[in-house]
Amino acid sequence: MLDALKDVVRKSSIHVCLINTGGCNGCDIEVVALLSPRYDLEQYGIYVHNNPREADVLLITGAVCEQWKENLQRIYSKAPEPKVVVAIGNCPLTGDVFNQEGSSVYAPVSDFIPVDAEIPGCPPRPAEILAAILAVGPDAIAAKGRQKP
């Protein structure tokens, strides 16, 4: 009973933190576009706060740069349980065009922190991001919350 109640609460209020670990900024503005009245992310109870300490979902955009190798793990450890990591775009998945000889990226991001969902695209359309977050986010958070620590 309590779990079911917690599930409902967890599903209906999701706080999101956006972390750009070295991308081109394209995925970031597509997430900002999600806030616009046309997509209206907040009607689903999802708030983009950019504060890792109150985040349920960490959105990672960008291949991991030199500075982020340790800082990303620090941010991940600061987010409270249950938490879900969503990788947006190709950079966190494979390093995109940057992952070539001579660059200083350390993709994929799953080498550093566990990733729960992936959205490929360079950048993905806002509708694709929205669909993926809604399909994965609420249930994953509820399921993670039910796990015993």
Partner: peptide, 24 residues
Amino acid sequence: YVHRGIERVMKGKTWQKGIFLSER
């Protein structure tokens, strides 16, 4: 925080590939 080294990657590539890198 977001240094990727694009110019170094572009070096030694053809322009057809470079133009997609410059876009990013």
